[in-house]
Computed example of a mutant assay.
Amino acid sequence: MKAMKEKVQEVLNKVRPFLQRDGGDVELVDVDASGLVKVRLKGACGG
């Protein structure tokens, strides 16, 4: 069974090309034990 962090990363990898097309990106910062996901938006998405 995959860890939650790996599952989230897989989903982010699917949406990443759409963000990059608009000059942005997303970075997985953390997934805590309760399932809270923290990401960092970069580039055009950062504002």
Results as ranks from 00 to 15, higher is better:
30 D>W: 01
37 V>W: 01
35 G>E: 03
17 P>F: 15
29 V>N: 02
31 V>G: 04
44 A>D: 11
26 V>A: 13
40 R>K: 14
39 V>H: 03
14 K>V: 05
8 V>L: 08
26 V>I: 15
30 D>C: 02
13 N>T: 07
16 R>E: 03
12 L>E: 03
7 K>N: 07
10 E>N: 10
32 D>C: 02
7 K>H: 07
15 V>Y: 11
9 Q>T: 11
36 L>W: 11
11 V>G: 15
47 G>A: 14
31 V>H: 00
1 M>Y: 15
33 A>H: 08
29 V>W: 12
30 D>K: 06
34 S>K: 04
4 M>T: 06
26 V>R: 09
25 D>V: 01
5 K>G: 08
27 E>P: 05
8 V>N: 13
41 L>K: 13
43 G>I: 06
44 A>L: 08
40 R>D: 06
8 V>K: 08
24 G>H: 15
47 G>H: 09
46 G>M: 13
11 V>M: 12
35 G>Y: 06
2 K>M: 04
8 V>I: 11
17 P>W: 14
47 G>T: 11
46 G>S: 15
6 E>L: 04
26 V>F: 14
5 K>F: 00
26 V>D: 10
11 V>D: 08
23 G>M: 09
25 D>R: 05
25 D>W: 05
34 S>Y: 11
12 L>M: 03
9 Q>G: 06
6 E>G: 02
8 V>S: 13
3 A>D: 14
7 K>G: 10
38 K>R: 05
33 A>D: 11
44 A>W: 15
39 V>C: 06
39 V>R: 05
47 G>N: 10
43 G>V: 07
3 A>F: 13
16 R>A: 06
2 K>D: 09
39 V>M: 03
33 A>V: 11
38 K>Q: 03
35 G>A: 04
26 V>N: 11
43 G>Y: 15
21 R>L: 15
27 E>H: 14
22 D>F: 12
10 E>T: 05
7 K>R: 13
21 R>Y: 13
25 D>G: 14
46 G>E: 14
3 A>Y: 10
37 V>R: 00
20 Q>M: 08
34 S>E: 05
23 G>I: 09
42 K>W: 15
42 K>S: 06
13 N>R: 01
38 K>W: 14
10 E>I: 00
36 L>T: 04
28 L>Q: 07
39 V>T: 10
6 E>F: 01
21 R>G: 15
26 V>W: 12
7 K>F: 00
22 D>K: 07
29 V>Y: 07
35 G>P: 04
46 G>T: 06
13 N>D: 13
15 V>D: 03
4 M>P: 04
45 C>Q: 10
36 L>A: 00
24 G>E: 12
21 R>S: 14
3 A>C: 09
